[in-house]
């Protein structure tokens, strides 16, 4: 179906993930090509977050394989996957609430040693997220939800990822803030970063993503371009509230 002749940047093949004997993800296969923005939509509990956690390495596999940039990374620890270029902005943002905003951002650059380039990247994050700059010395726990989400995204960018995994970036945020966050995501995408986006807000996700997968009870059921999925009557009925 896909015509891109290059090999995928990320390829999940028959991936199964279990929590204490219960299979949350029941053998899914998906692939992402360099520079794509792909979304994974589905109801609560379908296994979307679980899938992202398995790609980033905070959850182990019960079966199947994850290939990234030609390597099997299925058993690689999380911190090594980040070094390979896979960054996750986790559900609930995962801000270090007791560290300052600047320390949070600098944690994103933990694996890097190029102080001057880090400072330059920090400046870039500040221009993308001007509200963050005013709060650098503040303890991050005092930020609003939207500001925390921006810090979380900025922090992930500071590792200079090749593959950015975003878990529900719009969750619990006001529409204006969501719009701002998706502008940033779009900028990042335009710079060539490959993005896998998990969203409950399917309308929004499909509008931005080139392709999408629909996940139901641990399985991928429907796949297609963003436009196709937006037009699919089943998708419309189940996820777009029609």
């Amino acid at each position: 179906m896909h015509t891109n002749p290059a090999s995928p940047l990320l390829q999940l093949d028959g991936v199964k993930i279990a929590y204490g004997g219960i299979q949350a993800v029941k053998g899914i296969s998906l692939e992402l090509y360099k520079g794509e923005m792909v979304c994974l939509i589905g109801a609560n509990g379908a296994g979307k977050t679980t899938t992202l956690n398995a790609i980033s390495g905070t959850l182990g596999l019960a079966g199947g394989s994850i290939m990234y940039d030609g390597d099997d990374i299925g058993t690689l620890p999380t911190h090594k996957r980040l070094r390979k270029g896979i960054a996750l902005v986790p559900e609930g943002r995962g801000i270090f609430t007791r560290l300052t905003v600047e320390e949070n951002l600098r944690m994103g650059a933990y694996i890097r040693n190029d102080a001057a380039a880090i400072d330059a990247d920090l400046e870039r994050v500040y221009t993308m997220l001007p509200r963050v700059k005013e709060r650098l010395a503040q303890v991050a726990g005092t930020l609003s939800g939207g500001e925390q989400q921006m810090v979380a995204i900025g922090r992930a960018l500071l590792s200079r990822p090749k593959l950015l995994l975003l878990d529900e970036p719009s969750m619990g945020l006001a529409p204006l803030v969501v719009e701002k966050i998706f502008e940033v995501v779009q900028t990042v995408k335009n710079e060539g970063v490959t993005i896998l986006l998990v969203e409950q807000n399917a309308n929004l996700a499909l509008e931005f993503a080139q392709r999408g997968y629909v996940m139901e009870s641990g399985q991928l059921t429907i796949t297609g371009s963003g436009r196709e999925l937006l037009a699919d009557p089943k998708v419309r009925a189940a996820y777009l509230g029609e």
Binding site: S56, G57, T58, P77, T78, H79, L82, R83, A87, L88, P90, G94, F96, T97, R98, L99, E103, R106, M107, G108, Y110, I111, R155, S159
Partner: peptide, 20 residues
């Protein structure tokens, strides 16, 4: 900084590339 980050959240620290 990595020590404090790990103390607060092992999982997110490892997502930052910290060998917790």
């Amino acid at each position: 900084r990595a020590m404090r980050a790990t103390a607060e959240n092992h999982r997110v620290a490892s997502l930052m590339g910290v060998d917790t």
